[in-house]
Design a binder for these strands. Structure first.
Length: 467
RNA sequence: GGCGGGGUCGCCAAGUGGUAAGGCCGAGGUCUGCAAAACCUCUACCGCGGGUUCGAUUCCCGCCCCCGCCUCCA
């Protein structure tokens, strides 16, 4: 069974096949962060969805070449660097560094390329693309020195979002300062410098200015992945106008079909409401780490809801994630103890549970269904271990299959070395228990807990867990 | 007004034309020196009203409610 994905362009479930004649390489473009602040968990919801997609494609044998852009020039980054009184590049570097730290914390597999909008080669490419569009009379220079895309020249504009442009109701968000446009829907390819931009500008055939947002993605995607992409992802809010604009620009320049599969994840809500600073429910990753939650707990929460469903993020959801992960960890520990040094044979047939897990993900990344299979498997396996019917070999094979699942989930426990002092306490406690000195044993258990470890007495002996 | 996503157990959330996975929390139990873990048992008339059908949570129609987009927000 192949991987099936719901393509925003067709609004239907499609069997996924890459363009690569060998059917192996997948070219994937994912809209990345605007580096004007620390990214919030809503941003990471999108990045974790893309991570899940990439990892699942990889487990299915594809080689994913992925690009994630860094938008390091726009109104917000310019406003930010002015506020701080530092050069734009210094301002954005802080948040680029933070972004890379954060994705590491969340165990997001790095993309192949992270092109930045301000890199000279991409600025140059954007200018070239705009020149091409201008030569085709698709782009026009306005009186203020900005260059706009004439959407009347691209009849398919609006198709991805299923919008009929004639029926659009004007919303308050239309920029009132763009008087120069021929049509209200035309979007900026190149923005002329204005005094607010300070020393942020690049020379161009149209004078000083900076690129528009949309052209950035078109330029970097086609530069790094070629004119046709297999998959293009982003949040639902990017469908219109951003992705429409990308399609229009790219296709008018290359003459090729830009992206074959469009995937969009739904928004994240907090406590049932839109996350916003004024409601006080706005979380960056760092806010949650400061509350004592770990990257993998946050990863679990963001991962465990299907990407096209709105995700309602709550602190109690994080607590539930913690409990679920502890259950998972305890199971793995048990298996490891049983397996000891035994290795799984390379030829063993996969456990049906592992197969079911991956098949659920084949179905448009049905993560909830997949996790359901995983927890069914955990219960059955625990039951078998309780009954004493699991051999070292079976435990080893179970672990080998689970490793396959973990290559997609990446939810393994952090391993921490047990300090010698704690080990000594555990030994003393074992001696006390052997002597049936229960009071002494309990005092030692408290001492171990005070050192940050929990000791559990199992049939195989005491087991330590980091608290 | 247009386009789109939702309403399934206290919370999160799968799923199917034949009376509903899983996780968390809760109650009781087995095991254990006591714990912990694990396991077992228990907890849902699937937003409302019609229709199609032998039978609908699942298909169709209407309605209510929530959320998003509608020109630079993941």
């Amino acid at each position: 069974m192949s991987v099936r994905l719901l393509n925003t362009a067709s609004r239907s479930l499609e069997n996924f096949t890459p363009l690569d004649p060998a059917g192996r390489v997948v070219k994937m473009y994912t809209c990345g962060p605007t580096v004007y602040n620390y990214a919030h968990i809503g941003n990471f919801r999108a990045y974790i969805f893309e991570d899940l997609l990439q990892r699942h494609l990889e487990v299915r044998g594809y080689a994913v070449e992925r690009v994630m852009n860094l938008t390091d020039v726009d109104d917000k980054t310019i406003a930010g660097c002015k506020r701080c009184g530092v050069p734009l590049a210094d301002f954005t570097q802080t948040f680029k560094d933070a972004f890379f730290e954060d994705i590491k914390t969340l165990r997001i597999r790095p993309a192949t390329h992270y092109p930045a909008a301000t890199a000279p080669e991409y600025i140059e490419r954007m200018i070239d693309m705009i020149k091409t569009l201008q030569a085709k009379e698709i782009a026009y220079l306005a009186e203020d020195g900005s260059v706009y895309f004439r959407i009347a020249k691209f009849p398919r504009y609006g198709e991805l979002a299923h919008l009929n442009l004639e029926e659009l109701r004007p919303s308050g968000r239309i920029q009132s300062d763009e008087y120069e446009k021929e049509a209200v829907g035309d979007f900026a390819l190149w923005k002329a410098w204005n005094p607010n931009d300070g020393d942020v500008w690049w020379e161009s055939p149209w004078g000083r200015g900076r690129p528009g947002w949309h052209i950035e993605c078109s330029a970097m995607a086609t530069a790094l992945l070629g004119p046709e992409l297999d998959i293009h992802c982003g949040g639902v809010d990017n469908i219109f106008p951003h992705h429409e604009a990308e399609i229009a620009q790219s296709e008018c320049v290359t003459g090729r079909h830009f992206a074959r599969t469009w995937l969009h994840c739904a928004h994240l809500m907090v406590d049932g409401q839109k996350m916003s600073k004024s409601l006080g429910n706005f979380y960056t990753l760092r806010d949650l780490l400061a509350k004592g939650y770990s990257g993998r707990e946050i990863r679990y929460v963001l991962l465990s809801v299907h990407y096209r469903l709105p995700l309602n993020f709550t602190l109690s959801g994080l607590d539930a994630a913690r409990a679920a992960l502890e259950r998972l960890d305890a199971w793995v520990e048990r298996l490891q103890t049983l397996a000891g040094e035994t290795l799984a044979s390379k030829e063993h047939p996969p456990t049906p549970a592992c197969t079911r897990f991956l098949e659920a993900l084949d179905d448009d990344l049905n993560i909830s269904g997949a996790l359901g299979h995983l927890f069914d498997w955990i219960r059955e396996s625990n039951r078998a271990m309780d009954a004493g019917s699991v051999t070292a070999l079976l435990a080893a094979q179970t672990l080998a299959d689970f490793a396959r699942i973990q290559s997609v989930l990446e939810l393994g426990a952090e391993t921490a070395a047990v300090p010698a002092q704690v080990l000594a306490l555990v030994e003393q406690r074992q001696a006390a228990r052997a002597a049936r000195d229960w009071a002494g044993s309990d005092v030692l258990r408290d001492a171990i807990a005070a050192a940050g470890w929990q000791v559990k007495d199992t049939k195989q002996g005491p087991q330590l867990t980091r608290v």
